[in-house]
Simulated assay, not measured.
Amino acid sequence: MSDSVEIFEVGPRDGLQNEARLIPVAEKIALVDLLGQAGFKRIEVASFVSPKWVPQMAQSGAVLAGIRRVPGVSYAALTPNLKGFQAAVAAGADEVAIFGSASEGFSRANINASVAESLERFGLVTEAARQAGLVVRGYVSCAMDCPYDGPVAPEAVVRVVAALLEMGCYEVSVADTLGRASPEAVDAMLHAVTEAFGAARLAAHFHDTGGGALENISVALARGIRVFDAAVGGLGGCPYAPGAKGNVATEAVAAHLAALGYETGLDRAVLAEAAQLARAMRLGDAKLL
């Protein structure tokens, strides 16, 4: 097993999207610019969804236009459909992401479509991305539990991961959207998906509602997962998953991995500074230079 693990920073998108305070563009740009100094290979900074449903992401184009891009860093944007993809391309996103669900209830609540309908939409996005020369990452929400349907069978996750990989996603991140999954449930799901596809093209995305995200990361490491999504300062939550709290904090994941002997390549001093800024943004007292 590799002793190197990548943390995919999602704070500027998945972290900020659920904040009650509307974060100014300048603050979002400042956070992304600071994170760019930490050593990440990939940072998810924007989401081109309807501002009616996710108002926090309404100025994603301005964020992508304003950041100082660091060579070697891929700045990603979430795109639910072809319209969102076209907006992301126009804004200069380096890569895009599509987000499906393993449960019907969450799929309908989150994007107003069945799982099958969502996959059909995503096929249009991945084909457009192929033609544009952009890579596409996939997410599978509610990979263990759904706030509407209850426990999710691992076989349902396998079906959605298979569809996303088949349509061209270079990597698929399976998510504990509620942040309450037990280690046993995580292990059962990852056993199924790694048996079907191996671990090289998989990532894991843990929210920390129940305080078990780091333990679940250890479970995923044992299954061969070497990419984890995290949000600096523990920002986040999902507007369509009632009760879900923030993503697992990037700085906590980096410390946990270091304690286990894994190398992330991240500057933990910069991470600590970014976490402080993220917390200040949440409270509305960020002081920007």
Rank of each mutant, 00 (worst) to 15 (best):
F48T: 00
S173E: 02
L221M: 03
Q276C: 14
P147K: 00
S4C: 14
D3Y: 11
A109G: 06
M57V: 13
I111T: 09
L134Y: 07
L283I: 13
F122I: 05
L289M: 13
Y75Q: 04
A38V: 02
H256Y: 00
D176I: 06
V219R: 11
Q86H: 15
S47K: 06
G36M: 03
A97E: 11
T79Y: 00
K52T: 11
A162P: 03
L257N: 09
K41C: 12
T177Y: 04
E263D: 15
G66D: 00
D229W: 09
G72E: 10
M57A: 14
S74L: 11
A77R: 04
D267C: 11
G265T: 03
V10W: 10
A91D: 00
V172G: 02
K52D: 12
V152H: 08
G15H: 00
L34F: 00
A128H: 06
L288N: 08
L260T: 08
S47M: 10
L190E: 07
F206R: 10
L260K: 14
S141K: 01
Y139C: 09
A269E: 15
K245I: 03
S74I: 11
E251I: 04
L271E: 08
A203S: 15
G237Y: 01
E95G: 12
L260A: 12
G84E: 03
L134S: 04
A143L: 11
A162V: 01
F40I: 12
A185W: 10
C169M: 05
E251D: 09
A272Y: 05
